[in-house]
């Protein structure tokens, strides 16, 4: 065979150098672009974290709850979520494998389990968000936007609601359109005023202020009683409970912003993955792929589903472990 003939065979079309169908290849390229989007977000998170490397919140102190149980269990629930997602990845790949053998019953069963796994994960994430928004101990935000938390002399955290002195007279009522100026609205009032917090702090002699700054051992710095009082009186501006896009009782508001944005974007992927899985599930049940004699659609949606799992592995590391 001359070179001319060989070249003709290579370049004249009808050749499949990657031996993958169009749909699967496009799914791979979509995944590449989505991976770059996620890594952009995570790299931006890394940027903010390295910028405030000496004052970033400690994840083990932020995510410590398990549904239906009281107490301090860092990492446990999110490890469970990770396992659920990996497990649903396994049922997905089993569905793909059953599809290769054209076994409709098995594909149906495994697709069903995958959808269930996805729903458990999304539900867990919603709970995780709710817990994070509700908050735990509460804190005081300073004029510079930093967070002052409260600990007792042994270093255990103390909740804002346990120290703040509330007397009925100084309570301000939230302004609403119906009881005030109809063209002015006001956001939710902070749970306590600064006077109530300072008053309560003065009454409890064994309470100290803990700043955001990490010391040599990677722990938050605890101030002396005198310094604590000075900080509160001079810099304290706002009592904060929980986290939202503006304030965050756990530390830098950027931490909450990135948490909502990245886990939200990932949760949206899981949600849309569940929807797509449900559509494919019904197609399997209706026998669409049985008639087509090919379960490649299951394989393609499987690629997407594994990708969602893959992203979570990184989110887990960078938000909860590192």
């Amino acid at each position: 065979m001359s070179t001319a003939v060989a070249e003709g065979k290579t370049w004249d079309g009808g050749n499949q150098p990657l031996k993958a169908s169009y749909g699967k290849m496009m799914m791979w390229f979509f995944i590449v672009s989505d991976a770059l989007t996620f890594s952009g977000f995570l790299a931006a998170y890394g940027f903010s974290r390295f910028k405030f490397i000496d004052s970033w919140p400690i994840a083990d102190e932020v995510f410590t709850h398990i549904p239906f149980f009281h107490g301090n269990y860092p990492m446990i629930y999110v490890a469970f979520m990770t396992f659920v997602l990996i497990m649903s990845s396994v049922t997905m790949v089993l569905a793909v494998d059953a599809g290769h053998h054209l076994n409709k019953a098995k594909v149906t069963f495994y697709m069903f389990l995958t959808v269930i796994g996805g729903l458990i994960f999304v539900g867990s994430q919603a709970w995780e968000w709710a817990t994070f928004i509700k908050g735990d101990y509460g804190a005081v935000q300073t004029k510079g936007g930093n967070i002052l938390q409260f600990v007792d002399t042994e270093g255990h955290r103390v909740a804002l609601r346990d120290i703040a002195v509330v007397d009925g007279h100084s309570q301000r009522v939230q302004h609403e359109r119906k009881n005030g100026l109809w063209f002015v609205s006001e956001g939710t009032l902070p749970p306590y005023t600064m006077e109530q917090v300072i008053h309560g702090f003065e009454a409890n002699k064994n309470i100290l202020v803990r700043t955001q700054i990490l010391n040599e051992e990677g722990k938050k710095t605890v101030l002396t009683r005198a310094e604590s009082l000075k900080q509160l009186k001079e810099n304290g501006k706002l009592a904060v409970e929980g986290a939202n896009l503006h304030v965050n009782e756990y530390g830098s508001p950027l931490f909450a912003d990135f948490f909502f944005f990245i886990t939200g974007f990932h949760g949206f992927h899981v949600f849309s993955g569940v929807i797509i899985n449900i559509i494919i599930f019904f197609n399997v049940v209706l026998g669409t792929y049985e008639r087509r004699k090919s379960y490649e659609m299951v394989e393609k949606v499987g690629l997407y589903w594994h990708f969602v799992d893959l992203v979570w592995v990184f989110v887990f590391t960078f938000f909860y472990l590192v």
């Binding site: 990657l18 993958a20 790949v93 594994h306 893959l310 592995v313």
Partner: peptide, 18 residues
């Protein structure tokens, strides 16, 4: 991430080019 991509997403079975 390697094992998820290689074994769950079947990257191990794809061509070198892809």
């Amino acid at each position: 991430a390697y094992y998820i991509t290689w074994d769950f997403m079947h990257m191990r079975d794809e061509t070198k080019g892809l």
